[in-house]
Design a binder for these strands. Structure first.
Lengths: 108, 108
DNA sequence: GCCACTATTGCGCATTGCGCAGTAGTGTGC
DNA sequence: GCACACTACTGCGCAATGCGCAATAGTGGC
């Protein structure tokens, strides 16, 4: 199974969860997701997700100059984003319970 | 969040898990998945998945006449399918752990 | 000056689930 | 006998989304 396909529909949730902890810019979010265990996320996917969530009105955005490179475009959750995170987390949990139940006969 | 997108990449696993329990034909697999909680799976998705898995060599297939309607094309796991199920289940479990960990700060 | 690292954007592709239409067999009610 | 519902499968085209790759650009070390 390709973990790429597993990410579909979950990357939004993962990005929201990371941003809930603390605001972040694209490059940083990629790093934090990889540290969390999603080692194979492509940077383009994350940037795309951030732009999509922003366009959907779930994120705030502000640019900050950096001492160690180009400017950084920070993103943070607003109310829409927080409630999206909550409802998506619910959907995920229920979905993952269904799957784990389906797999209960499959040995680890 | 759309549960449709969550299914991406997981439907294969769900179908394999259902078939591991017992052989089944398309219509039947749809029913069993819906009973398991995946209420929104489209029938076309399941038929497509079965064909894809069969083409990939993970399933056996045999046609059985039926008393209550058209013939039924049964599918069952072969060795390839079983090992695909095992490895996919592993991937899923590790992935779902990562997500649950990311979401540990998000209240239920 | 060249290279590595940081940081973002845009383009086109591949995968895959879905809606919908079509085909077809069986049994029920009128 | 005919419309209808349920069973059962196939094919077509669409939409969403993650990815690879190239391009652009700033900073600092050698």
């Amino acid at each position: 199974m390709d973990s790429t396909q597993l990410l579909k529909g979950v990357l939004d949730l993962a990005v929201l969860a990371v941003l809930a902890e603390r605001d972040g810019y694209g490059y940083d979010v990629v790093r934090r997701l990889r540290e969390a265990g999603l080692e194979d996320v492509g940077d383009a996917s994350v940037y795309g997700t951030l732009r999509r969530l922003f366009r959907a009105g779930a994120l705030t955005s502000y640019v900050v100059a950096s001492d160690e490179g180009p400017h950084r475009k920070y993103y943070g959750l607003n109310d829409v984003g927080r409630s999206l995170l909550d409802s998506s987390a619910k959907t995920w949990r229920s979905f993952s319970n269904i799957m784990n139940d389906l797999l209960k006969e499959v040995p680890s």
